[in-house]
């Protein structure tokens, strides 16, 4: 290697070193001492000024030329990820809620007696074919009977028949379209007769 090549290599190395220094300064990566030295040199070195100016132009150009490919800041900092995380959380909570509902349903199902009526009572199936007017009438009749009798309220409560029993006692030939008041009266009369018999 001859002298001129050596000088050129040294010159290139020096330029590279100065370019690196300018880059580090423009990116704010020089420590305070190096920064002070650089700025002091800047005041007295026109070539360094030119190089800094050129580097600043190239860096801003690079920033402009690559801005389209850059991800938005909120994506880079995980906001979108956290948003999708929120959706995942909602989905997980929904799944847990569904599991709990299913478990409760299973518990409810297993706690019921294994008769035909209970088998029909699931959360997803409608109530068995009850005649609402009949139920209301029987309840009304029971309350009338309690009012008429001399027994206290606790005995009335004790005498209240379970709903399933009421359903079982429902006459099969009862016309479901009857007015509920007639049913109530007849039911009340039955109760009174039973009391009379008991007495």
């Amino acid at each position: 290697m001859n002298t001129s090549e050596t000088n050129q290599d040294n010159s290139n190395d020096e330029r590279t070193s100065v370019e690196n220094l300018c880059m580090l300064y423009l990116f704010g990566e020089l420590d305070s001492d190096a920064k002070s030295r650089f700025e002091h040199q800047l005041a007295s070195d026109p070539e360094l000024c030119e190089m800094l100016s050129e580097q600043s132009y190239l860096i801003t150009s690079a920033a402009a030329a690559t801005v389209k490919r850059a991800l938005p800041a909120e994506v880079r900092r995980g906001k979108v990820l956290s948003t999708s995380g929120a959706w995942r959380s909602i989905a997980a909570l929904s799944a847990i809620a569904a599991c709990i509902a299913l478990a409760l349903q299973v518990v409810d199902y297993s706690a019921r007696p294994a008769d035909g009526l209970a088998l029909n009572r699931t959360a997803l199936s409608p109530e068995p074919d009850l005649d609402e007017s009949v139920l209301i009438a029987k309840a009304w009749a029971a309350s009338q009977h309690a009012t008429d009798s001399t027994r206290d309220d606790s005995s009335v409560i004790d005498d209240v028949e379970p709903l399933d029993d009421l359903l079982d006692e429902q006459p099969s030939d009862l016309d479901a379209t009857l007015d509920w008041i007639f049913v109530a009266i007849s039911s009340g009369d039955e109760k009174r007769m039973e009391e009379g018999n008991d007495g």
């Binding site: 600043s56 690079a62 920033a63």
Partner: peptide, 16 residues
Amino acid sequence: RVAPAARRAWVFRVAA
């Protein structure tokens, strides 16, 4: 308007 990392360079460019 300017990416934070490029702000120093941008300032010197404006100054130039």
